[in-house]
């Protein structure tokens, strides 16, 4: 399957990557190879088979909706950010 430049840029946009020009050709080749390989799955008959999304055998683990003490406090978490003001994370203007 041939991947066009537009398709690579579209996938990069969906993935939030601002690719450098020098990366595009190499990535196109890699993705073509990978998609070529995973497309081999087409030859497997899965007619009437139910999908499996998880291999965890239990369902509905309940807990009380109560606030529990946490290891990390607000100061710890804010200390990880580049900019903060009044106990909030500061980001560039959105609108």
């Amino acid at each position: 399957m041939k991947i066009t430049r537009e398709e690579i840029l579209h996938l990069a946009k969906l993935s939030d990557f601002e690719l450098k020009e020098s990366e595009i050709d190499g990535l196109s080749k890699n993705l073509e190879d990978i998609i070529g390989y995973i497309s081999e799955l087409n030859s497997l008959d899965t007619e009437g088979v139910e999908p499996t999304y998880q291999v965890f055998e239990m369902e509905n683990v309940w807990r009380d909706d109560e606030i529990q003490p946490q290891e990390a406090n607000r100061e710890d978490l804010l200390a990880l950010t580049k900019e903060q003001r009044q106990d909030q994370i500061k980001v560039p203007k959105v609108l």
């Binding site: 995973i38 799955l41 087409n42 497997l44 899965t46 088979v49 139910e50 999908p51 499996t52 999304y53 291999v55």
Partner: peptide, 14 residues
């Protein structure tokens, strides 16, 4: 063609 198909194949593997 890919994701759903793979999850069905996963069932067969299990």
């Amino acid at each position: 063609a890919y994701y759903l198909k793979a999850q069905k194949a996963r069932t067969k593997i299990i």
